[in-house]
């Protein structure tokens, strides 16, 4: 008996797939927003806060960028209860993904901020703005514009990496696939299907980012470079 493809075998599991997909989408949308917001704070503080704060944040960024995501996730979910901090699986997933995206994005943003001319900060200061006001009104948008493509890629990497949260029993898309193939033994079909779904999610994310960027960075149109 040769192998036959039968996607109809997945039909009874549509609701599991939808549940998993919903979880993955919500996780991604929320952590992309919280992760990028946290990245802005970290990038700002690493440039302007007290030395010991910079030091601590530098430690966080390097620790996150130089250890596997799954280990970070396990540490938060399985390790922290050892300190008496108990977190449910989905919250652990949110925290791990946010911290991960924020660490990478803070480094990317830092490059964007330092590439935004010193002259812009000086112009802000000459107009009486505090450093915080200058960052908020003057530096942030051009810095984001400069590193936007890298931030898009990083956010997509974290979305794809979210497949790992199935390992701590979060019912995401990958968890749904594992669950289904353990029932119907149709692993080829189900993994092919979620591969396509992840691919579409990544394309969709890139597209949405581009649309947002087109609006927010509209000032760049007609700029001579």
């Amino acid at each position: 008996m040769g192998p036959t493809l039968d996607f109809l075998t997945l039909l009874p599991y549509v609701s599991e797939l939808l549940k998993g997909l919903t979880t993955t989408v919500i996780l991604t949308v929320v952590t992309t927003l919280t992760g990028l917001a946290l990245a802005v704070v970290v990038a700002y503080m690493r440039a302007n806060a007290q030395p010991w704060v910079r030091w601590g944040l530098g430690g966080y960024v390097e620790l996150t960028r130089n250890t596997p995501f799954i280990v970070q996730l396990f540490f938060i979910f399985f390790g922290l209860p050892g300190l008496g901090i108990k977190i449910d699986a989905i919250t652990a997933a949110f925290i791990a993904m946010t911290l991960n995206l924020a660490a990478y994005s803070a480094e990317i943003l830092r490059a964007g901020i330092s590439a935004t001319a010193k002259g812009q900060l000086e112009a802000g200061r000459a107009l009486g703005m505090t450093t915080l006001q200058s960052y908020r009104h003057v530096v942030l948008v051009p810095a984001f514009a400069r590193v936007y493509p890298a931030l898009i890629s990083q956010s997509i990497i974290v979305m794809l990496g979210s497949a790992v949260v199935s390992q701590i029993s979060v019912f995401d898309l990958t968890y749904a696939a594992n669950f289904i193939q353990s029932r119907n033994f149709r692993s080829f079909e189900v993994y092919l299907l979620i591969t396509l779904i992840y691919l579409l999610l990544a394309f969709g994310m890139r597209r949405s980012f581009m649309l947002v960027g087109k609006r927010v960075f509209a000032y760049q149109q007609g700029e001579q470079r």
């Binding site: 812009q120 051009p142 700029e223």
Partner: peptide
Amino acid sequence: SFNLFPHK
């Protein structure tokens, strides 16, 4: 170098 804010 002017230092106008390019996004405004």
